[in-house]
Design a binder for these strands. Sequence first.
DNA 1: CGCACTATTGAGTATAGTCAACCGGTGTGG
DNA 2: CCACACCGGTTGACTATACTCAATAGTGCG
Lengths: 251, 251
Amino acid sequence: MTSTRPVHATIPIVPSPATIKAACSSCSLQELCLPVGLSPSDIDRLDRIISSRHTTRRGSSLYRIGDPFRSLYAVRTGAFKTIDLSEDGSEKITGFYLSGEILGLDAISTDRQNFSAVALEDSEVCVLPFEHLEQLLREIPTLQHHFHKIMSRDIMRDQGLMLLLAGMKADARLSSFLIGLSQRFANLGYSAMRFRLRMTREEIGSYLGLTLETVSRLFSRFSAEGLIRIDRREIEILDFKALRAIVEVRE
Amino acid sequence: MTSTRPVHATIPIVPSPATIKAACSSCSLQELCLPVGLSPSDIDRLDRIISSRHTTRRGSSLYRIGDPFRSLYAVRTGAFKTIDLSEDGSEKITGFYLSGEILGLDAISTDRQNFSAVALEDSEVCVLPFEHLEQLLREIPTLQHHFHKIMSRDIMRDQGLMLLLAGMKADARLSSFLIGLSQRFANLGYSAMRFRLRMTREEIGSYLGLTLETVSRLFSRFSAEGLIRIDRREIEILDFKALRAIVEVRE
DNA sequence: CGCACTATTGAGTATAGTCAACCGGTGTGG
DNA sequence: CCACACCGGTTGACTATACTCAATAGTGCG
């Protein structure tokens, strides 16, 4: 998957595959990830506790439900989904994670993973041993506060999704989803108007509480109305304001 | 549940209205709230940062959207709802909070309140100045870890609600809601089988993404099927297993 | 006592789900 | 290399679930 891969490769990485040991201090996600606001020397200390990086191939799991919780994972490149699978085999998607986002925060409360994390494309994460991290949080107030903000942001994000699921019609959900993705890509330095969906219609549907057919129909409708252009998973937003308007209606 | 007190009054409080200054060390929620696992001397230190308690009358706000964030609030007695109000005036409920639960965690990320917290009955909270709390977390690892667990639990709880909203039919949502309430009351030492709803049908509907009519109809149906007995807001669960079964179907 | 709020119930309807057929691209094995 | 199978996606027809609108009744507070 490595050489031929085109659009896929997710991040403007510092191109030094040799020095995989160097972490935050050389990472382009410094301003988005854990190190936000830290002094160089504190970033060094953070670097030291990041035991390793880990590569996960598309379709395989970073961790599975029930695994003991020891570490958080910061997505470096690629994308993940977290899934909750019920006994009957059907899976529900609880979240999508892009570069700079932290996986595993829900597991702190249970000491075990509550969901499985599956890579949507070849991905790389930084492993953050939680015990060491807590130690460091006690020593670096800035880091501590930022970490609390990250957890808090997760709570906010979930509450936003709850509002979406509880109160919006299908078209508003999808529209809101696209707007959210657009913003996240923009934050990463990519185009807000044109990007590649990392997930299938079915996965989007699962996340938004819709069927894949409804998602597909809505993409077609948005496309017919000139709001977006979509070809397979390449999507271009043509009328951002109109998308927003759809959300506002039923906010 | 001492005896004469109607199901209403929420907590087996130490009955000393004089010493309102004493906090965690004399609070019956010690085992459920922030102090979990702390030594008496550490509880004392926690006590010292809890600047005050605050009473909120039924129907009035503990805080409002946009208020600057300075403190978290631990519910001591009573119950709250948090609401998101859109410009058109309609409000959506994002959560219900009972004794021992912490309000305001989402505001850490934004430095402002994202929702309003309204008391569902006369209630009392302990005010936890966040800056002091962070200081204390740095000094007491046990407290730090427990605080992270509390935030993590909030994330879990939200994810659970997301799964509910995204994947369950109306009857499963309501059933799941009742089971959840039952467990929370049981944790507080009340009957799991018989309790008083603190909220209206409309509020339940708003929380679960349903209309008040649907909630009402479902209560009637559950009642007709012998799963519950309900009179106004007093509810008795007659067939817990059947309620569980409704949830399992569409899990 | 009366008004406002909360709840119940009914009738008709709209939105999204289900079931199903079909298409195009991709990858695999003969 | 081609045929075939499979996966992801699109579209259509029908249906069920929950929403909307509306009428009515019971509670509780001033």
